[in-house]
Write a protein that binds this DNA or RNA. Structure first.
Lengths: 208, 208
DNA sequence: CCTACCGATCGGTAGG
DNA sequence: CCTACCGATCGGTAGG
C-alpha cells in the first residue's frame, strides 16, 4: 500500500502505468512489455509498478482492458449515434480505419489487438482467452449491423453476415500491415476502396 | 569449430536447429525464440547452438530464411506448373490456404510470417527489413499473375492488381486468425468463399 | 561440439 | 510508494 499517497493519487498512477503499457505493448507485444522498462519510463521502482497489479499477467490483463476501453472510445462511440444498419456499419468501419491511421499517440506500434492476438494465438491462458472474447464481441456487433442492413434492404438479401465480418477483419489486418510494415501512403485509400466494394459505394447525402 | 564432427554433420545439425527454431518461432515469435530453449529441446549446449550463427539476430535471420524456403516449397512450387494467369493464381491461393490449414508439423503456431511480421512491424533492423522484402516479393508475384489474368480476359479489365493483392493478403491474415485464435472448423470454407468472390467462381473443368 | 563462465535483465518478494 | 534483495534466464564469450 501507499501511506504517502491518497487513493485518488494511486488510481492516477495506475492509469499512467496502463497508458504507458498500452503504448509499449503496441510496439513490443504484451510479453515484450516488461516491468523494468515500464518502471524506467515512468521513473518509478519496479516494485512500485508491480504493486498495482501483483503479477505480470495481471498487468497484461489490465493493459488489455485499458486498450479495449481506448478502442471503444475511438471506434464504437463515434458511431453510436448513427442510424442502425448500414449507416452505423459504415461509421464504425470508417472510425476503425481512422483508428489504424491516426491513433499513433495511444498505440504508436499500430493496432494493439492485432499485435496482441497474433502474439498469443498459439498460447493458452487468461490473456489469450480475454483477447478471443474481445474479438468475438466486436465481430458480433459488426454482424448485428450487417443483419440490420440486410433487413433494411441496404445490403443484398443473400449476404452472409459472418462472411462479411470475416472479410472486414481481413481488411483491417491488411491495412495494419500496409501502414506498419510498408508505411504505404495510399494504405487508407486502399482500405476505403475495399470497404466500398464490400458495403457498396458511399453516398454523399441520403438519396430517397 | 567442431573437431569431432564432419562438415556434413555440422550442416545437418544447423538444419535441425533452424527447423526447430521455425516451429518454436511460429508459436512464440522470433524474440521468444531463445537460445536456451532451443538448446534444451535439441539436447545441446547453448554455446553449441549459438556457434552455428554467432548472434541471436543471425539465428533469427537464418530461421527466417528456412521458413521462406518451406513457404516456397509448400505454396509456390505446387503451383509452378499451372498455366500463368488466373489458373496459377488460383493454384497459389489454394496452396496458401492449405498451408494455413495443414502445415502444422512445420509451423505448429500458425503462419510463421504473420507472427513474425506483426511482431517486428514496429521495430527496426535487419529482421524487419528481411520480412518486408519477403512480403514485397510475394505480393509482386501475386500481382504479376493478376496482370496476366487481366490480359487474358480471365479477370475484369478494370481490376487493380495491387488492390486484388491487398485483399488476398487480408484474406490470408483473417484465415490465420480464424484458425489460430478461434479454431473455427469452417475457416477454410470461409476463405474459399472469399477467394471465389475475389477471383470468380471455380470451374471444375475448362469451358471453351 | 562441450564446460564454465560473464554481466544484464527477467518476474517477484520482504520489509518499511 | 521505496530500497534491497532473490533465483532464473537472457545473450554471449573464453578456452578447449
Amino acid at each position: 500500500m501507499s501511506p504517502r499517497h491518497s487513493a485518488a493519487e494511486a488510481r492516477r498512477t495506475r492509469e499512467r502505468i496502463v497508458e504507458r503499457g498500452m503504448a509499449l505493448a503496441s510496439c513490443d507485444g504484451l510479453e515484450g512489455l516488461t516491468i523494468g522498462r515500464l518502471a524506467a519510463d515512468l521513473k518509478m521502482s519496479k516494485a512500485g509498478v508491480l504493486g498495482h497489479f501483483g503479477t505480470k499477467e495481471a498487468l497484461q490483463l489490465a493493459t488489455l482492458s485499458g486498450a479495449a476501453a481506448a478502442f471503444s472510445r475511438l471506434v464504437w462511440e463515434p458511431a453510436a449515434d448513427a442510424e442502425p444498419g448500414l449507416p452505423r456499419l459504415r461509421a464504425v468501419c470508417d472510425a476503425w480505419i481512422a483508428y489504424m491511421d491516426t491513433a499513433r499517440d495511444v498505440f504508436p506500434g499500430g493496432c494493439f489487438f492485432t499485435t496482441a492476438s497474433v502474439e498469443f494465438d498459439a498460447r493458452s491462458g487468461p490473456v489469450r482467452e480475454s483477447l478471443a472474447r474481445m474479438h468475438r464481441a466486436w465481430r458480433r456487433r459488426l454482424a448485428a449491423e450487417v443483419r440490420t442492413a440486410v433487413a433494411a434492404g441496404d445490403l443484398p438479401a443473400d449476404s452472409d453476415p459472418e462472411q462479411v465480418v470475416f472479410e472486414l477483419v481481413g481488411l483491417f489486418m491488411a491495412l495494419n500491415q500496409e501502414i506498419q510494415l510498408f508505411a504505404a501512403p495510399d494504405a487508407v485509400d486502399r482500405a476505403r476502396r475495399t470497404l466500398d466494394r464490400l458495403l457498396g459505394p458511399r453516398r454523399e447525402s441520403p438519396v430517397p
